[in-house]
Design a protein around this nucleic acid. Structure first.
Lengths: 296, 296
DNA sequence: CTTATCCATGCCAAAAAAGCATGCCAAGTC
DNA sequence: GACTTGGCATGCTTTTTTGGCATGGATAAG
């Protein structure tokens, strides 16, 4: 089996047409070169060079061999560079999960910033429930998740980075009686129908809202369970009921809906990043961006 | 710079997902494997494997690196095989020259046999004068030549292999007065107009014919100097004169021409192969075929 | 005829790789 | 929860490989 060193030596000799000058170029002694090339020829079973009085020239077989192996060195360095980009987080695919209470539209700025920072990176974006995100990240199927606390299914293989809190707001039909108030308290909502998005596990925002209601001493009347929070706001606009949302979701800016802050001190939505114990460099980059952006 | 051995080790470990089993497959001790892979990782600057409790798995960077270098081994062996075919004479291009008195049609059988013997070989066929062939073969621009003796310009860098002699024949217009004879002697041709193909150097067949005439005591009346012997026979058919040709050229089998043998003992055409001192394998194969075919 | 150039070879030293024994870590087991 | 087991890494020694120096032989140029 030929070695890369032999091939590099061979190519240099072929280029310069001389063992002596190739030896100079390669910073080795000429006999070392002669031996390596001779060994390569023996392994291949045919002569690569015609030894002439004034240097050497390629045999036809040597010429075709040169044409075929000349790409190898570049191939190798390209492979190394590609791997290095992946390893350093310069390139690659970031599999990003987010829960429905953190819509992609509110992540747009961070995602764009990320793609700008890592121009060779790609993003696979997927919206799944908080609990599932933990499983996915823990099993390595995803790189990073953005969830709404509390999360019920904790896992030792992931860690959570809490992001700055968001005040909760209430989304009301524009014509709603409470819409003429500047701000609301949870106790104002006792008689209201809650449109909410819950999953089987009942973690995340739905859990938080229920807890807040229970703390006020009432059980929320849930009008409808929907799985998509954007359509949830549609139901609110249609007058079906009210919804409690994190502050950022106001940016959806739907017509026919009035947004009012909840002034209860406990009405705080916490979100967090789900990271595997050893995040990929891209995940780390994204996490860094995320904590900086939300802190600012 | 990584070595091929390191890459082969890496690929085996990646395939089997374990250093231990890869060591068995590669017939080396496991520490040797560990070290080579570790060294490769260090040279590349990124980790190829995740070391886990039960074997190892590729990192994303390792996976992409594997995808990129997996072709190299095949690339190398293909290059070696291609070179070996060229060197052994199994494949390649044979640059074959022939003089106009040995037309390609008379070489057809040998050429076809050659292409059958070496199915991967190609032939570049060219018809040039004998003296030029010597120069071309000597300079390495052609692999083998087939000439008509005598050749004036000898060269130390080539050798000549004489082929079996051919009797000379006379090509006559079908209506010619001599056409009713079964055979002819050179002395019968004293009054004839010779259509001949001569080159500047005046070697080969033209020289031979002139010599034969001079030996009979007359200078041939040359009707026309043409450079293509097939058109020479056309001129004969048109009644311009007669032509002296080697026996094989009779196979051209033109209508309007009668062929008659020359019974003079000296009326013998000698042809020869021109070979460089170290012929290519293909040239050697062809020469072998040629000597066998003409001997038979 | 001499000289200069260039490649191959013999010999020795240095470096690299392999093997062996062992340590360490994590997962599964009783 | 201690123990066993499977699997990779590391220290040390031996073997193999590789490179350098000196030299020989062949060939074209002067």
């Amino acid at each position: 089996m030929p070695s890369l060193k032999q091939i590099r030596y061979f190519l240099t000799v072929a280029d310069l047409g001389s063992f002596t000058s190739a030896a100079v170029a390669l910073f080795v002694a000429q006999p070392a070169l002669s031996r390596q090339v001779a060994q390569l020829e023996e392994e291949l079973g045919f002569a690569l060079f015609e030894r002439e009085a004034r240097g050497v020239s390629l045999t036809p077989a040597g010429a075709i061999y040169r044409d075929r192996v000349i790409a190898i060195e570049h191939l190798l360095s390209a492979a190394a560079e590609e791997g290095e980009q992946l390893a350093s987080g310069e390139a690659g695919v970031l599999r990003l999960l987010h829960s429905s209470s953190i819509p992609a539209s509110s992540l747009l700025a961070v995602i764009q910033h990320f793609l700008q920072t890592c121009p060779k990176a790609h993003i696979d974006l997927d919206r799944i429930a908080s609990e599932m995100q933990v499983t996915e990240v823990a099993s390595g199927k995803a790189d990073i998740g953005i969830i709404r606390l509390p999360v019920l299914r904790r896992d030792a293989r992931v860690r959570f980075i809490e992001l700055p809190a968001e005040r909760l707001w209430v989304a009301l039909p524009a014509a709603h009686a409470l819409a003429n108030r500047d701000s609301l308290g949870m106790n104002d909502l006792q008689q209201q129908v809650f449109v909410s998005a819950v999953h089987r596990e009942r973690g995340g925002l739905a859990r938080l809202v229920t807890d807040l209601c229970l703390r006020q001493g009432f059980v929320p009347r849930t009008a409808r369970v929907v799985s998509r929070k954007t359509s949830m706001l549609n139901l609110v606009a249609a007058g079906l009921g009210i919804a409690v949302i994190p502050e950022r979701m106001r940016t959806l800016d739907m017509t026919g809906i009035a947004f009012r802050p909840l002034h209860d001190p406990e009405a705080i939505a916490l979100s967090a990043l789900v990271l595997p114990q050893r995040p990929t460099p891209l995940a780390q980059s994204f996490a860094d961006l995320m904590t900086q952006a939300t802190a600012a």
